[in-house]
Structures are given as C-alpha cells and as structure tokens.
C-alpha cells in the first residue's frame, strides 16, 4: 500500500479502539448476538454508502437515498399485497416484490442521474428536490399512516432478514459481497478510475475521451439499485413502511463515506474506508446502548465529533500534499 498515512489508518485505528472499548465496557459486546446485531444494522446504510462512495468520488452527491428507501419500501409492499391474490404466498411473490424494489430503485436513480447529467442541474439541488418528493409520496400513499405487508407474506418473507447461511445473517452476507465488489470496482476497474478522474477534474476527463455524463449517470443508477437492494433486506425486518422509514439515512451514508476518507469534493474514493466508516457509526450507537456511561441521547453528538475529526484529518493530508 502506498498511502499508509494517518488519514488512511485513522478510521481503522478508531474502529479498533471502539472494539476494544466496547469489550472493556460490557462483556456481552463479543457475544454472537451482539455482533450480528451491529453488523446487520450496518448492512443497510452500508450498501447505500458503498454506492454513495462512487457518487461522491465522481464529484456528485445524493441526498435522496433515505426517502428513496422509504418510497421503494412503500411501492414494494403495495405491489406484493396487490399480487398476493394471483401469486399466493410463496417464492414467486417475494421474487416479484424484489423485482419491483430493484426496478423502482433503478428508475429513481436514473431520474436523479438524468436530471443531473442531461438537464445539468446541481446534484445538491436535484436530490434535495427528489428527497422531498419521494418522502411525501410515501406519506401520501400511506395516507399519513403505515403501509403493511399482508400477515402471511410477512411471515414467509421474514427469514430474508432474520435467516442466514452458516449462522451469518443474509444482510451481512449481501453487504460483504457488495463491499468486496465495490472495492474491486473502485480500485481495479475502468469505472472506478473514471469516477476518480471526473471527480478530480471533469474537464481533463472529457479531454481524455472519458464519457463523463455516462459514468456519472451510472453512479446514480447503481446507487438507486443498491438502495433497492437495501430495502429488499430491510422490509422483512418490520414488514411495513411509513413516512418515517429511512429517515436521515442519507446523512448517515454520507457521513460514513467521509469518515472513510473519501474526499467530499471528489477525486479520491475508498470503499473499504466507507465500510469502516459505517461500522464506526453503528458501533458508537451500540456501545452507548450497552454501557450506561453516557446517555444514548448523546449518540448524535459523538457521531458529529467523529465526522468533524475525520475531515480535519483529511485536510491535514491535502495540505501536506500541497506543499
């Protein structure tokens, strides 16, 4: 590795510290149940954050992912309930629901991407707009209440969240696969290299025969698909969706990306850093809940401090490069 500097190792060191701290504060910390709990909770934000890493690396931003998750969950539940009489409870119904979730995610990402690359509107503005649109649509469809899966379907679908392979929960497995694929895509494929190039200087990329708009569009589409995937794994947990599903997920995902060492202005992306960032955020939450040292209400404050620290570390790095 070539950049073994403080800013690269910082997040990893913080993660290790948190693990040690957690074990020291509570003996239950290392129990299989708790570890599964932490990892499974990380998985949803984690998948989204991996997609967000590509968006941010190529100089974009997506504020709509939390609302998008709520919207996808709502559409998925509506579709599954509607198809229930024809398909009956069973694998076809669940697969159809998953197809709807991925399809809606793809369309939502495509919509964001097209507005940004074709209509040339700032990503911040576009996704601020769609953030409001998606969330108010779910609230409207649910008429201010909750959309629930039919009881039988819910029971059948439950294992997708609670079940697993060799004792590892499905969300964790899927998250791990996405993280590895993301890391490989960022480090070793053209797509990842192009994202970094566009984020560093999109003019240079354009002059270098890179199809800038297409790559940017793909980052939003992939993010949409990953939000769809996260929703597929999230819905069986509660079996319902409402106007407050996925609230503030966008901020947690962006925070994880930044803590992981990806530059907010684009140009440098670290998928494994993002994974570390996600784990840090959910560990803080977990430790505060396990140990009654500090009130869990201070969770947000501690996460805030970590985010600011991460950015300070990044700046230390870039000014060293500028010299």
């Amino acid at each position: 590795m070539r950049n073994l500097s403080l800013s690269t190792l910082g997040p990893l060191a913080a993660l290790i510290l948190l693990v040690i701290l957690g074990a020291w504060l509570n003996e239950n910390f290392y129990s299989a149940g708790n570890i599964t709990n932490v990892l499974a909770r990380s998985a949803f934000i984690g998948m989204i954050a991996v997609g967000m890493t590509f968006v941010i690396t190529s100089g974009g931003l997506d504020l709509s992912v939390g609302s998008m998750a709520a919207f996808i969950a709502g559409m998925m539940i509506l579709a599954m309930n509607a198809m229930l009489p024809r398909l009956g409870v069973g694998i076809p119904l669940v697969l159809a629901g998953m197809g709807v979730a991925l399809g809606v995610g793809l369309l939502a990402g495509l919509g964001n991407g097209l507005l940004i690359t074709r209509a040339r509107i700032e990503p911040f503005i576009v996704t601020l707009g769609t953030m409001g649109i998606f969330r108010s649509l779910v609230t409207w469809i649910a008429d201010g209440g909750t959309l629930s899966l039919d009881f039988g379907t819910r029971e059948f679908y439950r294992p997708v969240y609670y079940g697993g392979l060799f004792g590892i929960a499905w969300p964790i497995i899927v998250f791990a696969i996405i993280a590895v694929l993301g890391e490989v895509a960022m480090r070793h494929t053209r797509f990842g290299r192009y994202c970094e190039a566009i984020g560093s200087n999109d003019k240079v990329a354009r002059y270098s025969a890179v199809k800038v708009e297409r790559v940017q569009l793909w980052t939003y589409v992939i993010l949409g698909l990953l939000v769809g995937l996260a929703t597929i794994l999230y819905v069986p947990r509660l079996g319902s969706a409402s106007g407050s599903t996925g609230l503030l997920w966008e901020l947690e995902a962006i925070a994880a990306v930044i803590i992981g060492g990806t530059a907010l202005k684009g140009g440098y992306g670290r998928v494994w850093g993002t994974v570390v960032g996600v784990l840090i955020l959910s560990l803080i939450d977990n430790i505060l809940n396990l140990a009654d040292l500090v009130s869990p209400y201070l969770n947000g404050a501690i996460q805030g401090v970590i985010i600011v620290l991460a950015v300070v570390l990044q700046r230390g790095k870039s000014s060293a490069e500028g010299r």
């Binding site: 970094e196 190039a197 560093s200 200087n201 003019k203 240079v204 990329a205 002059y207 140009g267 490069e321």
Partner: peptide
C-alpha cells in the same frame, strides 16, 4: 493544467 492532466494523480 486544466484540461490535460490530473495534477493530484
């Protein structure tokens, strides 16, 4: 500088 090279890469 602006169109040819990614200076930080």
């Amino acid at each position: 500088k602006e169109r040819g090279l990614l200076l930080a890469k």
